[in-house]
Design a protein around this nucleic acid. Sequence first.
DNA 1: TACCAGGTGACAG
DNA 2: CTGTCACCTGGT
Length: 262
Amino acid sequence: MKNFDIQQIADSGQIFRFNKTDDSHYELIAGDKRLVLDENGEPDLSDPFWWHYFDMDTDYGKFIESVPPSDKFLSAAVRCAGGIRILNQDPWEMLISFIVSQRKSIPAIKTSIEKLCERYGSRMDGYYAFPTPDELAKADMDGLKACSLGYRAEYIYECAGRTAAGEYDPWGWQVLNDDDLREKLMSIKGVGIKVANCTMLFGYHRTGAFPVDVWIKRIEDEYYDGAFPVDRYPGYAGIIQQYMFYYGRGVAKAGSSKIDRF
DNA sequence: TACCAGGTGACAG
DNA sequence: CTGTCACCTGGT
């Protein structure tokens, strides 16, 4: 499959409910759906939901080819991360997941989200769906604290309550332009610029959103004199960000054999 | 065992 | 408007 590598997608930090189930299978849960992947990581895309989820109508080759050879870092990044795609995930699930993500390691994020699903999500056949706003709004602070959320519990509590009440409408916000959407997201307590941009990129497929986290910051400081030229990639800087994130994080983890240095 | 983690809100200056 | 700082707590 062209420009498709499930492991790279999983390691690019956009999905948290992706797990190895045994030595030859992976599972991916999105909303109330589950996808099982074989040892090759090749999903069955006959279901239109998953076809759209994996953004199969988009040609990622053109983004990769647009990278100027003069940019050595980015050229190396796309060589190593060419299988990354921006998934079409659910706005609500992304909003809650990235509120949870702040100041947490990825394993800790996954643990918290799994606990939220087990405690508040619907029981499916062998797994738990991501809780709906109504389901999550039933949570009290003690229950949320039991999900290892720490100080984020009150953010989740408030966001779920206001969404269930109709004050927040994550799905309705899809009609907003990027700036209005970002402003709306940042009006939510616990959502700053980084969480807003991640939610936009992964939950609303706003590929122009460019989340700057500690990894991207390090890369900007080290290779781009402090600021990445986002304007060079109009409307798809977020896709470029994913290549940078995957590669930069891989380089930092010394000994990672699948990463080539430049 | 300490230390840090894909940040944010509150508050100074 | 930019700079600091506390913050819950799991994972390594």
